[in-house]
Nucleic acid binder design. Structure first.
Lengths: 219, 219
DNA sequence: CCGATTTGGTGCGCACGTTCACAAACTCCT
DNA sequence: AGGAGTTTGTGAACGTGCGCACCAAATCGG
């Protein structure tokens, strides 16, 4: 029923999945401090969450702690990474190499987390052919073949909002099944495609709302 | 009890607040199409949400629709903007003008949403004094005076992870009460300070997790 | 003026996520 | 060896948010 090292991970709640990378980062920080073992309290405060929540989250992966002792940092790190799928690298294509796309491409925090920027695509002929961070920008027409040849499954949309839906359609047609959308627009995709949205101005608008509430009516 | 135009907005759920900017953007899109009235169905599909959810969200702000008719787009737009605090502009200081900070600074989707980049700060002496998008980069030592003089309440951390906590402490000391953190690190702040976190690699890691699940064990 | 139709507002049940509290299990000390 | 002290893992209660379904109100047509 179970392979030796493959504990047939039960369905992990979305909220937990979103926290696992934080735990992974906290574990790395603890390991850098030279620690070999940590308690749920240590890890929880390093990750900025409630200890009970941490333990419940980890319990979805299996029982990788020792009662009365704590968690072996390297051991837990391996298993969290495994649950997240970081035993292999994931290739990502970035569509749109404006300022944001370029910044993402140059960000060097990806490689250590199983993320590899595999290709850059842009519709602007002036940008096609230029090199950014060792990668050559390809035209949109090559998107499908790039995706298929390299087995890319994840795409980032870093275009203006007006182009987002069009790009998303092209990505879906090319076989992409996961999309991270930075463009300020809602994109609709088939049910079997996952879309996550990061909207910078929305985040600031939410903060502004809270500021407005905490102050009186006028600032 | 209530002023004429100030319907003493009851506590709006966080989930609703996070969607209001999306509605605002959808309303702008509908207005650009020349429409003056829209139904909850129209607006919901433009915003990518369930019509019932949209109506419930809007009902937290008040009753701004007309039964049998729909919503007056400009009227609703004004009231949603008001609820979000967009009747005034909010000044934002960006700490860290690396690639991401520069990209944010140049992003021109902020101004139309009540967000104004008021100042740039960096600890690197090589960057201090340089001009980016019409703003001069100031040293960290001027952070507090900048914040106080200009009445800035919102800050963006766009530094490497290692500097994030130090920057957050400085921001809090300077009187900032809302922080948007792009640095890959958890920052701890007093209870009266709001922090929102945007982590690019975490978003990709979450997508990778889903990819791993939908495929078999190996890609 | 009345009824059929359209459309916003809202109460209620369900599911998800969070937290608490406690039992199980391990270590250490005597 | 046994008991005291820790620390994990998890069942259960609680709160929040979501979506269905119903109700109320306004318009349109005759």
């Amino acid at each position: 029923m179970n392979l030796l090292n493959t504990p047939a991970i039960r369905n992990i709640p979305e909220a937990t999945v979103a926290r696992l990378p934080v735990y992974l980062r906290a574990l790395a920080a603890l390991a850098d401090q030279g620690l070999g073992i940590c308690s749920s309290n240590d890890l929880a405060s390093a990750a900025g969450v409630n200890p009970a929540k941490l333990r419940k989250d980890l319990s979805y992966l299996g029982s990788y702690g020792t009662r009365g002792v704590g968690y072996d940092i390297e051991f837990l790190r391996y298993h969290v990474a495994r649950a997240l799928g970081q035993t292999q690298d994931w290739d990502v294509v970035i569509v749109g190499v404006g300022r944001l796309g370029s910044a993402l491409c140059a960000y060097n925090g990806f490689s250590s987390r199983g993320i590899r920027i595999a290709a850059l695509v842009d519709s602007d002929p002036a940008k096609v052919g230029s090199k950014i961070g060792g990668l050559t920008v390809a035209p949109m027409s090559e998107l499908a073949s790039l995706v298929r040849e390299q087995g890319v499954a994840i795409a980032v949309i870093a275009t203006p909002g007006a182009a987002a839906q069009e790009v998303a359609d092209a990505l879906v047609a090319a076989g992409i099944t996961s999309i991270l959308n930075f463009a300020p627009a809602v994109v609709s995709v088939p049910d079997d495609v996952t879309v996550r949205k990061v909207d910078l101005s929305i985040e600031l608008q939410i903060l502004a709302y809270h500021e407005q509430r905490v102050r009186g009516v006028a600032g």
